[in-house]
Computed example of a mutant assay.
Amino acid sequence: MNESLGVAVVGHSFMGKAHSNAWRNVGAFHPGLPRVRQQVLVGRDEGRTKEAAERYGWAEAATDWRTVVERDDVQVVDVCTPGHLHHEIALAALRAGKHVLVEKPLTNTVAESEELVAAAAAAPGQVAMVGFNYRRVPALALARHWVAEGRIGRVRHVRAAYLQDWLVDAEAPMTWRLRADEAGTGVLGDLGSHVVDQLRHLLGADGEAAWASGHLTTFVPTRPGPEGPESVTVDDAAWFTLGLAGGAVASVECSRMATGRKNALRLELYGESGSITFDLERLNELTVETGGGDARVLVTETDHPYLDAWWPPGHTLGWDSTFTSQAADLLAAIGSGGPVAPSFADGLAVQRVLDAVAGSAAHDGTRVHL
């Protein structure tokens, strides 16, 4: 592919910044892929968007995403908005013939996700990816490989926790993430979606959920809003159990009220003959037990997943690197015309599990079959 691909990122806050960093750096670390241009950054406020575009390296700024997705100099649309906007923007971009990347979760509802999957299927020459960036953590990619090759035997039990503390203070201000009409759910969709995707990623077909039982809690029912106290309409914490297709049971805990935990995703896989443990706050490491005691594995070797593009062994990667690798995977699929993962269908599968958990929680934890 000789001509570069023009990229548009819609949204410039937390995720827009992370994705902008990835698009700025992907060509330097993955020179053999289709080349990209940081064409346009889109936001609602003209001044703030222009400032962000200059800071993040974009050629221009815009405030109307509808016009941007129709432009001939844009071939890739990257959606980093609040969840309630994912469906409309991604659908318009697909219909305009663009490749599309959408931050997780794919949408706020199963019905919206189903429509996006159908639209992607109707556009076979276009790549449509959902942004579960933790699939690009080399340690988790290596753990997936080890599970598939049977290093710990058949997985029987998974323990997972994703804990943060940014809402511990009851006076923390209102945000779109606490409004159901914008976010869909609270911690369930925000953090729980990552866990559900990792179960599917790490265990393959065995990680598909067969049933769910859940409980959701909102500890702080109101938050200071721009016009006074405003009701919180989503969950602050979630606990759920999943029965998986391979026979394993997964117990999951997610919270944005866990004092002292900044971004603590912990995954523990227990198999017939061993275990693998991962902690996002030590994201270059795995702890493996296969009968001889726990062993720490530093996942920085050049033959480990994703490491060939980066640094010499022992030189660790950071959280931001996962987004660069994610952009590289998207470009590789565009260049080869091959499949991409996680696809919109993967995003739909996660959304169905989240919907089942929410449905179970609404009925006192009654088991919901998928």
Rank of each mutant, 00 (worst) to 15 (best):
H84D: 13
E46G: 04
A128Q: 01
W146E: 07
W146P: 10
V68R: 10
A118W: 04
D72N: 10
G83Y: 05
V117Y: 08
G125F: 13
R135I: 09
R135C: 04
N25H: 12
V102S: 12
L101T: 01
A123V: 04
V147K: 06
Q75W: 11
N21W: 09
K50E: 14
P82F: 06
D64I: 03
C80K: 03
L91V: 06
V76H: 00
R55G: 01
T49A: 09
E103R: 04
G43P: 10
K104Q: 06
G32D: 14
A139C: 11
I89E: 13
Y56A: 03
P82V: 14
V69K: 11
R48I: 07
E115Q: 15
R135W: 12
R35D: 05
V76I: 15
K98T: 04
A53T: 06
Q75P: 03
V77H: 11
H145V: 09
G97I: 13
R144T: 00
T49I: 13
N25G: 05
R66C: 06
R48F: 01
E149M: 12
E88C: 01
V102C: 14
G32A: 13
T49Q: 09
G32T: 02
N133R: 04
A141Q: 00
A96K: 10
H19D: 00
G125W: 10
V79T: 12
A120K: 06
L94N: 06
H84K: 11
D64C: 08
L106C: 09
Q126R: 15
V137P: 04
L91Y: 09
V77T: 10
A59E: 15
L91M: 13
M129V: 12
A59W: 01
A111L: 12
L116T: 05
D45F: 09
L91H: 13
V110N: 01
T67V: 06
T49S: 02
A59D: 15
A128N: 03
V26C: 09
V117E: 01
G83P: 02
Y56L: 15
H99N: 06
A120C: 07
S20F: 11
A123P: 06
L142A: 02
E88P: 03
L94F: 00
Q126C: 12
I89L: 11
L41I: 11
A139G: 03
